[in-house]
Design a protein around this nucleic acid. Sequence first.
DNA 1: CAACCTGTTCGCCA
DNA 2: ATGGCGAACAGGTT
Length: 264
Amino acid sequence: MPELAEVEYYRRQWDAGLRAKVLAVELHARKRIFRGSNTREIVRSLTGAQMSESIARGKQMLFRFSGGNWLGLHLGMSGTLRIEAPDVRPGKHDHLVLRQAKRALILRDPRLFGRVRFHHGKEDPPWWSGAPDISSDAFSARYVADFLKRHSRAPIKAVLLLQTGFPGIGNWMADEILWRARIAPSTRGAALAPPQCKALRRATRFVSSEAMRIIGHDYSDPPRNWLIHQRWKASGVCPRDRVPLSRATVGGRTTAWCARCQPA
DNA sequence: CAACCTGTTCGCCA
DNA sequence: ATGGCGAACAGGTT
């Protein structure tokens, strides 16, 4: 599930726990999501700490706790965050539970492609850095053009999936963006004319901000005329001209596009 | 039952 | 040194 708007939605779920103390931490220390992290330190440091802030950047989330404790979460392919009653009994895939007086904060991740990180210190964690937000001024036409140039031999679909340039974009958003910009997914960056680069940046900003507004807020459905509603259906058609969608693996991922609006 | 999946990372190659 | 690609990771769903 989680691309940037879904991540935003889940981050907000845990915001119910802001300004409240963590009374106990329960986790499945052997699970892959904790790879590279010291789970005993997580339990020791977060127990008794108060959650003071949450931040999302692309698909990454950072939760700040009192005492200079930082928890970084990535939801991978199947992660979710939710709130339950304070005494809830965790399910099989609920690998991290932060108990507070009035609620339990839960991270669930069946496929375990997500990641939990921890940092202790006054400053941001060293691993908390990255590309400029798509909604920021730094995500400029120049920035996008430079990034496309650096990856000019890869199919544009693969480039959109690179978190170092398009933080938060995932498989469905990439297809939605290319469909709006009328660019075929297998096009090489080198072949994009300046107007297409502009259209690509514009579509990226539009899909991001709209997804954030619609999905990030309360997980409602994007408008009926978005490609996302067609892309997994066997009978999916282009929302613009009703042409049956084409499908192929591009950039290692299943990709859907309209051969008529997005000619190669 | 086999194939597929809204993601990242690693090793190999150019 | 840098960039591109395919495999691997794990478990649920179709």
